[in-house]
Amino acid sequence: MLEATGLMVFYENMLALNNVSISCENNQIVGVFGANSAGKSTLMYTLSGIMEDIKKKEDMAGRERITVLGAIKYLGKDIMGLKPSQRARQGIILCPERRRIFPESTVLENLRIGGYLASPPQKKESLEYVFRIFPALEKIKKRVGGFLSGGEQQMLAIGRALMAQPRLLLLDEPLLGLSPLIQVLLVRSVKEIRDERGVSIIVTEQYARPVLPIVDYAFILENGANTGGAIGQP
């Protein structure tokens, strides 16, 4: 489904990603594990195209020079250089690190903003689905996003990404800063989403343990490079 080869990302002369290759087949959950600053978020930004936007803004303001090299093939087509909105339209949706909920909108509005790309029937169906896998959200749907707890925010962030009709969902550190109880719940939901919606998922984490049971394949990033250490068969 997605195949990225030889990804290199430079911030000025600093090498953030060094020759990273990653692939994700249909209906797979792929894990990317690594410590802080290993390049996990950079990888996610590069795959989802947000890096193009960051690069454009930095260029315009004459700040850091960002260089992205390599190839990303998605559904057989090269998507390198496509804008993030175009990639999202093709089904690559990023659920970002630290969740980035819209803080002044209610839970329901957050989800409806997420449904920007969906048709009205899709929106209705996805909304029901999100409330089914995260019943906690339905109870607080009138609450403002900024006042949610970390776990609720993460559920909302995943729900919001689902509203955008993903075919490949990129989850960047979904368990960051959450209690073990919620971690277990979220990990179970991620697996459910894959099984029931047929969505391929790439998930990054610092601590592999909670995610390990559900990944089909995982590899380890260290200092921006793929160590070659892998878990499972690609």
Binding site: S85, R100, I113, A161
Partner: peptide, 16 residues
């Protein structure tokens, strides 16, 4: 409104 609150998060959801 999404874009007004967090432009990058809006980008991730396909909002140009």
């Amino acid at each position: 409104r999404g874009m007004a609150q967090d432009e990058r998060a809006a980008l991730m959801l396909g909002i140009d």
